[in-house]
Amino acid sequence: MNVFRLAGDLTHLLSLVVLLLKIVATKSCRGVSAKTQELYAIVFVTRYLDLLFSFVSLYNSVMKVVFLGSAFSIVYFMRYHKVVRHTYDRELDTFRSSFLVAGSMVLALLINSKYTFFEVLWTFSIYLEAVAILPQLVMLQRTGNIDNLTGNYVFLLGMYRGLYILNWIYRYSTERRYWQMIVWVSGIIQTALYADFFYYYLKCWNENRTLVIP
């Protein structure tokens, strides 16, 4: 555990708190993509199957349970909560997320480090996480004025990915035989997807006006 990894995990946690806060406090999920949230739920389930048979640390296990719980809570609110579900902008959330799932599965079957059931599912979760933000980014473009909490949620998610890259650089330079090419390439692609959003987020923040993605 290093400071970049810890900061990355805490930023990830904070992003989920911000999103849940927005949904619970405003009783609205306007501007939030249910497809992205469902993809994250799939990502966490397929990646954290190892909760059942491998133990790394209490910290890891607790975080896994928290991430799983928050992902399913968010999906529950957006799809089933009697008030919140009516605020979901279905017509703005049209990205074909099934293609992302299928593409990630094909890629995981072709490129993985060990051809076993759990390893392929874990690899699938890495590939799917890399692209899971796409429905949300497309939806932001269509939403027009983006509220602060939604904008901050996406910003924190991007920060979390950036901090993980710093964590890998740190680990690679301090640990012997630390090497995880699949995770690195996917993570760099994932972070790059936020570049456009970051540009407009910082620009609007600097000019002190409401976030709009052209």
């Binding site: 990830h12 190892d50 964590n167 035989r177 090419m181 995770v183």
Partner: peptide
């Protein structure tokens, strides 16, 4: 790739 296979990140 042993280190990577331990999946110690989240």
């Amino acid at each position: 790739d042993e280190q990577g296979r331990k999946h110690d990140e989240l």
